[in-house]
Amino acid sequence: MGEFLQRLLQNYPYVFAAILFGIGTFTVLTHSNLLKKVIGINIMEGSTYLFFVAAGNIRGGVAPIQDMSDPNLVYVNPLPQALMLTGIVVSVSVTALSLALIMRLYKLYGTVDSREINRIRNEVRASGSSSKG
């Protein structure tokens, strides 16, 4: 047990990544406020960046710019960081698209709460069918 805790402490970035991923997913799935859902998505994606960058990190390493004068330098792995740049681009576009959709929904319903939207839609549907019948 002690060894397990020690390993957890040593690998604390991954522990934080897992916690953040859980928080993000939980927020998306449980909050009815659409904006909070988008924030949740961003927390979740942030946790994956942390995970990747931690995977490529070496303690005491420097940025991977070659320095001939010091042969003992340790460089961190640049590949996960490059990948996460792409990941950030993707999450920015997802956020932009979802915010645009929220704006549209706000114009249509006057609220950004998904429960309210459901209620309004059901009322409209009920009144529509009763007027037909």
Partner: peptide, 15 residues
């Protein structure tokens, strides 16, 4: 509305 629902779930999938 359907798009928003789809986008949220699909993004969790991407994660």
């Amino acid at each position: 509305e359907a798009t928003f629902k789809y986008l949220m779930l699909a993004t969790i999938g991407s994660g």
